[in-house]
Simulated scan of single mutants.
Amino acid sequence: MQETIAHEEIKRTGVIGIIRVPTAEDLIKIAEALYAGGLTCIEVTMNTPGALKFLESARSRLPNIVLGAGTVLDGISAREALLAGAQFLVTPTVELDILEVAHRYGVPAVIGAMTPTEILAAWEAGATFVKVFPASVLGPRYLQEIHGPLPQIPLVPTGGITAENAAEFIRAGAVAVCAGSWLVDRKALIEGRYDALTERARKLMEVVKKAREA
């Protein structure tokens, strides 16, 4: 598949920020805060209330952000997300119908997998990137072991990624990392401290950049 802006931006920056919050309130403010920290690729999960409405409004209000839909579980949801404005799709598991939709509309698909068999199957089915999940359980060493025999597969660890461990995953062979709960800190949101999200985004971007340059 020809590279899209989303594909190129994920590869260039090496970071996808995940927004998964219990209410639709302030989704735009959260995205703006992350962007202020240098994060340009943002995924909003489909189990976030108002996710589709956010995608519809954010494409015009946040033109410099590459927006994706995450936790996509079936082809119908994938199509709805793309029609709402999503520029890439992210799944927690290997879902071939979602890949079919992604290919049909020419958008990147970050397909979730855990075992070597799942990872290879996702790649051979046409995944743009393979999301290694849950990274918090598997760890950087697991990613390194997978990368050894399968260096051609662009791996994106997800789950428990922070500024403290992101560099380890990059050095283990990750082309990018996905960060969610650490990045969009729930306590900071409750207190309305969006600057804290900006600072976390900035720190994560710096860590990944340095790890790539090392």
Rank of each mutant, 00 (worst) to 15 (best):
Gln2Tyr: 13
Ile5Tyr: 04
Ile5Trp: 05
His7Phe: 15
Glu8Asn: 13
Glu9His: 09
Glu9Cys: 10
Lys11Met: 11
Lys11Glu: 08
Arg12Ser: 04
Arg12Trp: 00
Thr13His: 02
Ile16Thr: 03
Ile16Gln: 01
Ile19Asn: 09
Val21Ser: 05
Leu27Tyr: 02
Ile30Ser: 11
Ala31Leu: 04
Leu39Thr: 03
Glu43Arg: 02
Asn47Ser: 12
Asn47Val: 12
Thr48Ala: 08
Gly50Asp: 07
Ala51Lys: 15
Ala51Gly: 09
Lys53Met: 07
Glu56Val: 00
Glu56Thr: 08
Ser57Glu: 15
Pro63Val: 08
Val66Ala: 01
Ala69Leu: 03
Gly70Asn: 05
Val72Trp: 14
Asp74Val: 09
Phe88Glu: 10
Thr91Gln: 09
Leu96Glu: 14
Leu99Ser: 13
Arg104Tyr: 08
Arg104Leu: 10
Gly106Val: 04
Gly106Leu: 10
Met114Phe: 14
Thr115Val: 12
Phe129Arg: 02
Lys131His: 03
Phe133Leu: 13
Ala135Lys: 09
Ser136Lys: 08
Val137Gly: 06
Leu143Gly: 07
Glu145Val: 14
Ile146Trp: 12
Ile146Asn: 11
His147Tyr: 13
Pro154Ala: 06
Leu155Asn: 00
Pro157Ile: 06
Gly159Asp: 08
Ile161Trp: 01
Ala166Cys: 04
Phe169Gly: 00
Arg171Tyr: 00
Gly173Lys: 05
Ser181Lys: 06
Leu183Thr: 07
Val184Arg: 02
Asp185Phe: 04
Leu189Val: 09
Glu191Asp: 11
Arg193His: 11
Leu197Glu: 03
Arg200Gln: 06
Arg202Gly: 02
Glu206Asp: 14
Glu206Cys: 09
Val208Asn: 03
